[in-house]
C-alpha cells in the first residue's frame, strides 16, 4: 500500500477527518487519504442539512463502502453552511480527490469552535504510524 498523502497545510482529527481554514474564516471538512483508502471504493454518502448546528465530535455524516460504513464526526463545533451535494451521485470523488473535490461540508465555526486544538500533519502522521505498528 502506498503511503497516505497528508497535506501540511491542513489540520486533522484522530477520527481521520481533515479541516481546512478558508480565507473567509469558514472551515472545510473532509476525510483523509488514509481513511478513504482503508474504507475502499465508496458507494454512498449521507450529508447533513445546511443550517444544522454541530458540536465538536458530533456525528454529522455517513459514508459507506461495500464492506464498511463509517460515521464522520465534525472536528469542531459550528453551523453547517453548505455540503458537497455532488458526492451524493459520485461518492467515488472522495476516493479520487479526498482533499480537493472530495470535500464534504463547510462550517461556520461556533465562538468556541476553533481548529487550534486539532492535530498538525506531523502529529497525524505519527498517529497513523503508531496505528499500523
Amino acid at each position: 500500500m502506498s503511503p497516505s498523502k497528508i497535506p501540511a497545510d491542513l489540520r486533522y482529527a484522530r477520527t481521520h477527518e481533515w479541516v481546512r481554514e478558508r480565507p473567509d474564516g469558514t472551515l472545510e471538512i473532509g476525510i483523509t487519504d488514509h481513511a478513504q483508502s482503508a474504507l475502499g471504493d465508496l458507494v454512498f454518502v449521507e450529508l447533513p442539512e445546511a443550517g444544522r448546528v454541530l458540536g465538536a465530535g458530533e456525528a454529522c455524516a455517513v459514508i459507506e463502502s461495500v464492506k464498511a460504513a463509517s460515521d464522520i464526526y465534525s472536528p469542531v463545533a459550528g453551523t453547517v453552511l453548505e455540503t458537497n451535494e455532488a458526492l451524493v451521485s459520485t461518492p467515488e470523488t472522495i476516493n479520487q480527490d479526498p482533499y480537493g473535490a472530495g470535500w464534504m461540508l463547510r462550517l461556520r465555526p461556533a465562538e468556541s469552535g476553533t481548529a487550534d486544538g486539532l492535530l498538525s500533519a506531523a502529529d497525524y502522521q505519527q498517529i497513523l504510524q503508531s496505528e499500523s505498528a
Binding site: 458507494v43 454512498f44 463502502s65 464492506k67 464498511a68 460504513a69
Partner: peptide
C-alpha cells in the same frame, strides 16, 4: 447489495 444498512456491517447503527 446496500449491505452497509445491515447488522453484520453497521452493528449498533
Amino acid at each position: 447489495t446496500l449491505q452497509a444498512r445491515e447488522q453484520h456491517i453497521r452493528r449498533g447503527k
